[in-house]
């Protein structure tokens, strides 16, 4: 109870410091960052030694380490080299070939829980579209998808380089909103977009939106990008829009889904794929706007190192076999 009370007081102080005192947060210098990394590695080594001696750690220690591995890199000022994978490059190449004014359909098929992975992809993709004067049509097969799209669009429109373009809603970009019906919506869009989206997100009639007025179906779309966290998602888009209607499409997937999409990539059904935060970071690098995807990669890598370390420790524990004493 006492510990909980102290933590509560500290959080209130930190919050007040931020809100009232204008405290801007902490950042470790590269030297401190390296020292933290060494300490973390040393403690993992110590756990390995203990395990070899037959003293096993509890699951809560693993949780604690993962928490530390995820949190501490957010304070660090060291950067990680991002290597571009072929599938990310393929997506970038596909949109690089589009002419100015190309009509790009972006389907936001995810909700806030998947935003850490997919929102950086969405922002990077839309950033490229806006800076290259593509016409962007947003839809969502998940109820919260269009809201996620608006968050990304609003953030990008506030950037000086995008603001300078004076993009107009309805002419340069449009959010047609959510439509229930999963892959049946995609199927119907193959015949007519307007039948599925008679109005946009804000209730404007389809025919009143200059950007989409002459867009009948997938035939009038130059490229499509699907941000997907599950069902309905990239698989359904490939099966219906790509294979039936010949849409050219790239996918941005959560890392859980990404391995299953390689099948479509290899068969040429997908023109490019971003997988998880790694894919987001790679794409941010390619479009020249490094943001959350890149910033989070250090935490991601640290967490992976900790997981690998515990896989090793777990296997050592399994081989040693003894469960003499639990820490």
């Amino acid at each position: 109870m006492l510990v909980a009370g102290i933590i509560l007081v500290l959080t209130v102080i930190a919050y007040l410091a931020k809100v009232v005192g204008g405290f801007e947060g902490v950042q470790f210098s590269p030297t401190v960052s390296v020292i933290v990394v060494i300490l973390l590695a040393a403690s993992l080594l110590w756990i390995l030694v203990l395990t070899l001696k037959g003293r096993l750690i509890g699951r809560r220690v693993v949780f604690l380490y993962v928490g530390i591995a995820v949190s501490l890199p957010l304070f660090m000022s060291i950067s990680q080299k991002i290597v571009i994978s072929p599938e990310t490059q393929q997506l970038y190449d596909a949109i690089s070939e589009l002419p100015s004014g190309a009509k790009v359909l972006v389907s936001f098929d995810y909700d806030p829980p998947s935003a850490p992975e997919l929102q950086p992809m969405a922002e990077a993709f839309l950033y490229y579209c806006f800076t290259h004067d593509f016409k962007v049509i947003v839809i969502g097969l998940w109820p919260q998808g269009p809201q996620q799209a608006n968050l990304a669009i609003d953030k990008l429109l506030a950037l000086p380089e995008i603001e300078a373009k004076n993009l107009q809603y309805g002419i340069d970009y449009v959010n047609l909103g959510y439509q229930a019906g999963n892959e049946f919506v995609i199927q119907r869009m193959g015949g007519s977009f307007e039948s599925m989206f008679p109005t946009d997100y804000s209730g404007h009639p389809y025919s009143d939106l200059e950007l989409v007025r002459n867009i009948r179906n997938f035939s009038n779309i130059d490229y499509s990008f699907n941000l997907s966290a599950g069902y309905p998602g990239t698989q359904e888009w490939v099966q219906v829009a790509v294979d039936r209607y010949g849409l050219s499409m790239g996918g941005g997937n959560t890392a859980v889904q990404a391995p299953m999409m390689y099948t479509y990539l290899q068969a040429g059904q997908l023109a490019g794929l971003l997988g998880g935060m790694n894919g987001a970071a790679e794409f941010e690098k390619l479009v020249g706007r490094e943001d959350k995807g890149t910033r989070f990669m250090l935490s991601q890598s640290f967490a992976h190192m900790v997981v690998i370390a515990f896989i090793l420790i777990g296997n050592v524990a399994f081989i040693v076999g003894g469960r003499k004493k639990k820490l």
């Binding site: 410091a17 931020k18 995820v70 992975e117 935490s299 991601q300």
Partner: peptide
């Protein structure tokens, strides 16, 4: 391979929450 990717995905969610707690909530991260 799929397991590895999923670990990556789950860690991303955790990073998202950690960022919320440390940046959006407490403002500890610059």
């Amino acid at each position: 391979a799929s397991f590895g990717y999923t670990v990556m995905s789950r860690m991303s969610l955790l990073i998202g929450r950690a960022d919320f707690l440390l940046f959006d909530w407490l403002g500890l991260v610059r």
